[in-house]
Design a protein around this nucleic acid. Sequence first.
DNA 1: CTGAAAGCGCTTACAG
DNA 2: CTGAAAGCGCTTACAG
Lengths: 336, 336
Amino acid sequence: MATIVDVATLAGVSTSTVSHVLNETRHVEPETKARVMQAVQATGYRRDVLARSMRRARTDSIGLVVSDAGEPAFADMVHGVEEAAAQNGVSLLLANSAEDPARETSAVEALLDRRVDGLIIARAAGSDGKLLDRIREEQKPLVLLDRLEELGGEHGNVDQVGVNNHAAMEALVGHLAGRGHERILLVSGDLRVSSLRERQDGFRKAMANRGLDVPPSLLCEGTVTAAETFQKVRPLIKGSAERPTAVLACSTLLAAGALRAVQKEGLRVPDDMAFAAFDGFTYSDLFHPQITTVRQPAFRLGESAVGLLLKRIEHPGAPTTIIRLDSELEFRRSTG
Amino acid sequence: MATIVDVATLAGVSTSTVSHVLNETRHVEPETKARVMQAVQATGYRRDVLARSMRRARTDSIGLVVSDAGEPAFADMVHGVEEAAAQNGVSLLLANSAEDPARETSAVEALLDRRVDGLIIARAAGSDGKLLDRIREEQKPLVLLDRLEELGGEHGNVDQVGVNNHAAMEALVGHLAGRGHERILLVSGDLRVSSLRERQDGFRKAMANRGLDVPPSLLCEGTVTAAETFQKVRPLIKGSAERPTAVLACSTLLAAGALRAVQKEGLRVPDDMAFAAFDGFTYSDLFHPQITTVRQPAFRLGESAVGLLLKRIEHPGAPTTIIRLDSELEFRRSTG
DNA sequence: CTGAAAGCGCTTACAG
DNA sequence: CTGAAAGCGCTTACAG
C-alpha cells in the first residue's frame, strides 16, 4: 500500500502539503494541488484511517448499544441508525446488551476503547446511573434512545429520542372508552424500562381523565417473557362479572403472551374481548384477529438519534434536546 | 489518559517490558510483572486500541454487510453475528446495502479502510463478482452469508453459511403432495438472489420427483415488493379448473403479497387454497390463517458465520468450508 | 504559499 | 531476562 510519503515523493512536495490538500485544511496553489491529486491517482493511495484517527480526536465512527436486538422494534431502530450513519459517512459499531447491565457496561467500555465519536444507547432494564456518569466522565457525546431518563433527574441532562407514550396511550384509551370499555387490563411488563413506565403512567392518567378506576386486578406488571405473561394474564381474564372487557399490551412480547391467554380461555377477539397492543405484529392486517396497534416510528427514531448525536459531536456545549416522535395508531377489528 | 510510558516510568521498567507483560508475548520475571501490573492499576492505564491496531496487523473487529436490514430474517442474522462477535471479544461494524450493489461496494470499501480483520457479507441481489475479487485482492478473510456463491464457479472458493434450501423444499412439496396438491404455485421472487434460486431449483426437483408438472402458469418470478407480488399473483390464482390448489411463497415479503392476493380473490385458507411460506410471520400460531412455515435458523446462521470467519482469520490457508444448516418445518392449518 | 520535524502510543526486531 | 530505539502513517504547530 502506498503511503503519504510515496505520494509526496512522486508529487515533489512535502507530506504536509499532501495532508493539507487531502484534508482541505490550508490553501495550496492549484498547480501544486493538481500534482498531488495526480500522484494520489498514480499510486492508488488511500489514507490510513487508523493512523489518521490516532492523530485526530475523531474516528468517524459511532457506537450503538441496544437492549434487545431480538425485538423487531429495536431491529428497526438499528436499521434507522445504520441508514443515517451511512448517509453521514460514519461507521457504525453495534452491540447488544440483551437487557444485561453487565454486558451493557462492557459493551460501552469496548466502544469507548475504540474511541467512537459518540454513543447511542437504548439502555438495559436494570441499567443504573453509573453508566451515564462514566460516559460523561469521558465527555463522550451521548444520545439516549427509546429508554429515556427522567427529566430533572440526576442524569436527566442528556439528548434523548423517544416516542410520545402519553399521547399514544391517551388516544388508545379514548378509543376503547368510546366503545364502552371501562374495565381495561393493562399488561405493562418490566417497569424498570422507562418506556413501559411511561405507558403505564399514561394509562392511569387517561383512565383518570375519564373517571375510570384502575384497580390492581386490571394491572399486570413485571413480566419479562411471553410465557410469564401468559401465566399471569390468564387468571385476570377468567370469566366473571368483574373481568376486563379489553386487554391492552405494552409490547409485542407482552401482546403475544396475553393473546395466548385470551385464546386459551376460549375468548374470541373482539366479540368476547377487545385487544390492542404497542408495537404489535407485522402484517397484522393479513391475519385474524387483526390487532389494533400503536406503531412506533422505530426507523425514524434511529435516524433522529444519529442526527442528534452528530449535532452534539459538532457542538458539545449546545443545550440538550429531547425529541418525542408521535406513534401512529392503526385501528383494526380487534377493538370492534 | 495514562500511556504506556507512564506505566513504564512508574514501574521502573522499559515500555517493551510493559508491552510484553500486557500481551504475554515474552517471559517476564514474576516480580517485574507484578510491579508492572501495579503500575497499570495505579495509573488506570488502558491500552490505546488505535495505536495498537496500527502496529499489529489486527483490529479485533469484523465487518458485516447485509442486503436488507429491514427483513426479519436478516435482523436475526445480525443478532446472531453480534452475539458471537461479543463472545469472542471482537467488535462488530454493521452496514446495510439495501440490495444496492453500489452501496454494497462503498460499504465494503469503508470496512476495508477500517481494516476489519474479516468480512461477513449477505450480498445484494445485483452484486457481481468484482466485489469478491476486490476482497480477495486485499486478502481479507471473507464469509458469505445466506446469499451464496455457486460451487465450482469462478468465485466459488469461499467460506459460506446458508440453509439447506433443497431439503426444505423437498419436505414442503412432499407435505403438500401428500395432501393431494398437484398444482402448486411457487412465488419465488428475485432469482438473482441465490437462496431464492435454490428454492426454485429445489421446487422443480421435488415436483419432478413426484412426476408433477411445473408449467409457467405455476411460477411467479421476479417480483421484489409485496405490492408487485400481489399484482402478479392475483391473475394466477383466479378461479378456473386450472388454478393452483396451493401457494408456496419463498420469503415473508412474497408471502405477504401472495396472501393478500388470495384474500382479495375471496379464497379461504386452507379450504379454498393451501398456503405455505419460507421465513413466514412471527407468532404465526396466534393468528388465522396459521401459516405452515419453513423457519430458517437465522440466528445460528449468523453465529456460524462468525465461527467460520474467526477460523479463517487464524488459518488463512485452511480449506474452504461450506455450512448448510437445516431449516425447521412448522406445519400448521394453512396446509390442511 | 510550503517544508522540516515533532509526536500520537503503541509493537517488535535487535542487542546484550 | 530486559532495554534502547526504530518505526507504523499520519497531523500539525512552527518557521520561513
